[in-house]
């Protein structure tokens, strides 16, 4: 872990820090909003504002990604992040389209909340790990010269 942090460039470190801050703020705002909703009887407008607040942290996460893509000088790493982003978006679109078609064909149920956000993060993470495994250099290339 320490080795990974040492090897990461400034853009990557800033992205990881930004994403972690967004995640922590999201948890706090979401927890606070749920607590408030359970205690107070809010109007529809109030509820809408409380729904928008945690959403801002999701937007902040996308901003962190956009800033990373702007700052990253390594073309390969930038490409990987874009691909992961596409996988995440594809997962959300696939799930929502499947849900839409089921409803179109007469299904009356609905999916649990946060399925789409979870699908996005899970697909991004899976893509990231998959690319990491696929792009691992063979053992003889990874070892310094004379130590193979």
């Amino acid at each position: 872990m320490a080795n990974f942090w040492k090897k990461a460039n400034a853009a990557k470190k800033r992205m990881i820090r930004g994403a972690l801050v967004a995640l922590v703020v999201y948890e706090l705002v979401f927890g606070g909003a749920m607590w408030w909703v359970s205690r107070e009887k809010l109007s529809d407008g109030g509820l809408l504002w409380l729904a928008v607040l945690p959403t801002l942290t999701v937007a902040a996460f996308i901003l962190v990604l956009a800033r990373y893509l702007k700052e990253e000088v390594d073309e390969f790493h930038r490409e990987l992040v874009v691909r992961c982003l596409l996988w995440g978006t594809a997962a959300v679109m696939l799930m929502m389209a499947f849900h839409g078609f089921l409803q179109l064909f007469g299904w009356h149920g609905s999916w649990p909340v946060f399925v789409d956000l979870s699908a996005f993060l899970l697909a991004m993470l899976t893509a990231k790990l998959t690319y990491k495994v696929v792009n691992r250099p063979p053992v003889e290339e990874a070892l310094p010269e004379g130590r193979a």
């Binding site: 979401f30 909003a33 749920m34 909703v37 509820l47 809408l48 409380l50 729904a51 928008v52 945690p54 959403t55 999701v58 937007a59 996308i62 901003l63 990604l65 956009a66 893509l69 874009v82 982003l85 596409l86 995440g88 978006t89 959300v92 679109m93 929502m96 909340v113 946060f114 789409d116 956000l117 996005f120």
Partner: peptide
């Protein structure tokens, strides 16, 4: 793509939170 993804995640997050509340 970033704009599209931000719009999708933002919209679905608002919808999810409203459904949660």
């Amino acid at each position: 793509i970033l704009w599209g993804t931000a719009a999708v995640l933002g919209l679905s997050a608002v919808s999810d939170f409203l459904r949660g509340y």
